[in-house]
Amino acid sequence: MQKELRRGYTTGTCAAAAARAAALALWQKQLVREVTLTLPRGEKVTLPVTVHHGPDWAEAVVFKDAGDDPDVTHGAAIHVRARKTGGGLTLRGGAGVGTVTRPGLAIPPGEPAINPVPRQMITAAVADVTPPGQGLELEISIPGGEELARRTLNPRLGIEGGLSILGTTGIVEPMSEEAYRTSLVPQIDVALAAGWETLILTPGRLGQRQAEERYHLPATAIVLTSNFIGYMLEACAERGVKQVLLWGHGGKLIKVAGGIFYTHSRLADARQEILAAWAAARGASREVVQQLLEVTTVEAAQEIIRNHGLGREFWDSLAARASQRSEALVRGELTVGTVMLNLQGEIIGWDGMARQILEAWGHGS
């Protein structure tokens, strides 16, 4: 019997708990050891806190518990320092909390990356503690947050200097594929807000680096899809994107040519079969087809194809097939071009639409 995975708490929940504890220490001189919150869905949770105070401030710390989710912020210390002000509630981002620098996100540029639901949670957590007519400043900081943020999507979203305070339910659901997919979508909004009508979708950071460093494609138009290529194509269509360039290593995009849009190898690894079928349709011998069924890398397949005279047309037509399958997935709401690369970043196959898109960005054939 599989063990049930333990849920955890979002950075928004941790910040709200620390904010309440700091406010209690500031206004009521209560140095509590735990705080109970009501989450957006009505659940009540209790989190341990550590509180310190000075002559005109109080600070509380909550260590994030992400449960059994492999979250890079698990164990991070969420600090909230409270100070009295003349009126209202002011939220500030301290060290380790990122700042939004690009339009397209839920928070405008220049503001700390504290998302709307966590802002509401923090406001609610201190509302019954702050005396009427009094004001409160809360500064959230996360030691080491800037380093942790490099392992998240924040740099791609234009969030600089640290982590985001996130969460819509207050709870981290362990191993949530849906949550990870959803976290990828804001990249599209940021790219659209930057003025791009054509976006570059790439499954991994290798493709991203090659696009930016070798081909000098616009970094703000690049969207990482991970294995969720189909999901991200549909998200582009829903948001009115005009054109998409699928860009990446052939090992992933071969699967798209076969109509596989979730490309994790554990669930979908038909690369050899797709290559073998494509070669057979172009008159390859039974020997070549068998060799392709046995290869384990695109690079090895590329050598077999080259040695048997199938030529560049093989890869170009396979790229075109990936574009056709992608356009069919979104019912023609997107125009798609595809570029397949090898590990060295060399283009091994591209279709006519990909050429048009690249030429518009100053890259000829």
Score class of each variant (00 low, 15 high):
residue 96 G to Q: 08
residue 122 I to T: 00
residue 281 A to Q: 15
residue 204 G to I: 00
residue 2 Q to V: 13
residue 221 A to K: 00
residue 2 Q to E: 15
residue 264 H to V: 07
residue 201 L to F: 05
residue 112 P to R: 10
residue 291 Q to R: 15
residue 189 D to C: 11
residue 139 E to M: 13
residue 185 V to I: 13
residue 43 E to H: 08
residue 86 G to C: 03
residue 315 W to R: 03
residue 270 A to Q: 15
residue 46 T to Y: 06
residue 158 G to T: 02
residue 252 K to A: 05
residue 325 R to A: 13
residue 1 M to L: 14
residue 47 L to T: 09
residue 90 T to V: 15
residue 168 T to G: 01
residue 241 V to Q: 03
residue 217 L to E: 04
residue 68 D to T: 10
residue 170 G to L: 02
residue 136 L to A: 10
residue 63 F to D: 13
residue 42 G to K: 01
residue 145 G to L: 00
residue 345 G to F: 12
residue 323 S to Y: 06
residue 310 L to K: 02
residue 142 I to N: 09
residue 134 Q to A: 15
residue 321 R to M: 11
residue 184 L to H: 01
residue 205 R to I: 14
residue 23 A to Q: 00
residue 118 P to C: 09
residue 364 G to C: 09
residue 257 A to Q: 09
residue 59 E to C: 13
residue 33 R to Y: 14
residue 20 R to N: 07
residue 224 L to S: 06
residue 330 V to G: 12
residue 22 A to R: 06
residue 122 I to C: 03
residue 89 L to A: 06
residue 338 T to Q: 05
residue 363 H to Y: 13
residue 338 T to Y: 03
residue 191 A to M: 07
residue 149 A to S: 15
residue 79 H to Q: 10
residue 126 V to M: 06
residue 114 I to S: 12
residue 349 G to E: 03
residue 320 A to D: 10
residue 318 L to Y: 00
residue 210 Q to C: 05
residue 248 G to P: 08
residue 184 L to M: 03
residue 32 V to Q: 06
residue 133 G to T: 09
residue 116 P to T: 13
residue 135 G to L: 03
residue 155 P to W: 09
residue 336 V to A: 02
residue 28 Q to A: 15
residue 124 A to R: 14
residue 242 K to S: 15
residue 253 L to Q: 04
residue 43 E to F: 10
residue 356 Q to S: 14
residue 285 S to R: 08
residue 148 L to H: 00
residue 236 C to L: 10
residue 220 T to L: 12
residue 29 K to Q: 15
residue 26 L to V: 05
residue 136 L to Q: 02
residue 360 A to W: 12
residue 56 D to Y: 04
residue 109 P to S: 01
residue 332 G to V: 11
residue 59 E to L: 00
residue 234 E to R: 11
